[in-house]
Structure formats: C-alpha cells, structure tokens
C-alpha cells in the first residue's frame, strides 16, 4: 500500500538525519579547531531540524508526535543505516562519514524535490539548498586534507576503507522500492547510489586518496530492517535521558 511505502521512506530518511545529527553534536566542545567545533555543531542542528521536518510529515500521516517518534522507540524500530550510528572515532573518521553521507543526501534531496508526493517535494525543495553547505564543507576538507601530509592521507584512506561498506548500506533497498519508483515518489536507491559514486569519485580524484573497489565490498545491510550495531541503543538511551526522567520537561 502506497501509504506504508511513503512512511517507510520517511522513517529511513529522518532516522538517518536524527542519528547522524546526534553523532555530529558529540563534536561540540571537542572539535580539533574552533571552526570545526562550530561546523559540526551547526550541521548537528541542521540535521536534527531536517529530521523534524520529515517526522512532521510522518505525524501528518497518523504517526505519533515528532518528539515521541524520536525519543520513544527502541533500536530495533529505528530504520537508520548502521553507517550513521557508528561512534565518531577520530576526526578523519567523522570527516569521511560526513563526506560520504552528505554527498548522498544532496542527491536524495534533489530527486525528492520533484517527488510525486507533494509534501515530500516541498520539504526537499527547501532542504536541498541547506545541504549544499554541508557538501561544500565536506568536499573542501577532503580536497585539502586528502592532498596534504602523509599522516592525513593515511588516516583518511584507512577511514575510507573502513566506512565504504557501511556507506553502501545507506542504499539498502526497501521492500517498497518498486512501488516508490513506479509511483514517482522516489527514484530508488540504485539510482541514487550510481549518481553518488560518480560524485564522490570526482572529488576523490582531486586528492591522493583511492576509492575502494566496491564490486568486491559486501555492503553492511540491516539497518533499514531494524538490525543495528551495539552502538545504537546506548546512543538512544542518552538522547532520551531527559524525556525519560520527565516526559513533560521543556528544553
């Protein structure tokens, strides 16, 4: 049923944003330089704002209030990719995840801005401008650090090798894939993935880094079906700490 397909799409998009937004916020106060502290904190704010926009669309379709959706589900009911829930690691790790994620997100928003489901198209039309700043930030750092010192290049390459299978997990097809494509709501993960690969390859080619050969990489799937790493539940517990103590608290 079309409604279920739309809900599934909204959940996976919003959950990715909420979880990565919280991971980004963990850099607040810890960024390697002040500008990066501010950048990751700003991106956290943006991403959580984006998730709110999509959770609001879910609420319009009969799901609970955005705060309830965000803070009351256990890990197995989250539809984010495992990619977004991994701990931040060191700055190179967070930077590579940011680069791989936001280049995909920009393509996703561009495609969704012409979705046949008008409420999604409206939100995506708005957000596709905002995400350009995330992409600009990621690509600039990748170009600069990816062709700088040996240590920077080695660190980034290691993180790229570790994260690539997880990044491919973003494109795990849903059971509603064909229906979403046929109805013009979403062009499907394969299409987004193909454009994403071209895009990230263009940037990586301007550095000393090498994109791993994805034909021999098994993607880390499962997140879209509620299968998560051991890192998600502790993150959710932390996110819901206030609402669990006092559900009526305003903060």
């Amino acid at each position: 049923m079309k409604r279920e397909a739309i809900k599934d799409l909204l959940y996976k998009i919003a959950d990715d944003q909420l979880i990565l937004g919280h991971r980004n916020s963990e850099w607040t106060g810890l960024g390697p330089i002040l500008e990066e502290d501010i950048a990751f904190s700003s991106m956290a704010q943006d991403k959580i704002g984006h998730s709110l926009a999509f959770y609001t669309l879910l609420h319009d379709l009969g799901e609970p209030e955005p705060d309830i959706i965000a803070f009351s589900r256990s890990a197995s009911r989250f539809r984010n990719s495992q990619f977004t829930e991994l701990p931040n690691g060191e700055f190179d790790f967070s930077l590579i995840r940011h680069f791989l994620y936001d280049n995909a997100e920009a393509i996703r928003f561009e495609k969704l801005s012409t979705s046949s489901y008008a409420p999604i198209a409206k939100v995506a039309t708005k957000l596709k401008g905002e995400i350009k700043y995330h992409v600009l930030h990621a690509n600039t750092w990748l170009r600069n650090l990816g062709s700088s010192t040996e240590e920077a290049i080695t660190r980034l390459q290691n993180s790229l090798n570790t994260l690539m299978p997880y990044a491919l997990g973003m494109f795990e097809p849903s059971v509603h894939e064909q229906e979403l494509i046929a109805t013009g709501i979403y062009p499907g993960e394969e299409k987004i993935k193909a454009e994403w690969l071209t895009k990230i390859q263009q940037v990586v080619a301007q550095t000393e880094l090498t994109l791993p050969d994805i034909s021999s990489l098994p993607p880390m799937l499962g997140g879209r079906a509620g299968q998560h790493t051991k890192y998600l539940q502790p993150l959710l517990n932390e996110m819901a700490e206030v609402i669990k103590i006092d559900p009526t608290a305003e903060w």
């Binding site: 700003s42 600009l136 930030h137």
Partner: peptide, 24 residues
Amino acid sequence: LEYATCPNCQSTNTTMRSPFGPTL
C-alpha cells in the same frame, strides 16, 4: 555560496573561511 562583499570596506576580494558560523 562563496561570494561575499566585505561589509567594512566593500571589497569583493574575500575568501570564505567556513560555511558555518555562530548561527545556522
């Protein structure tokens, strides 16, 4: 995205240092 005119001296010879500042 990267273009800005300096509000102090009106020069357009400016460089973006970070796409993120004190507010979004």
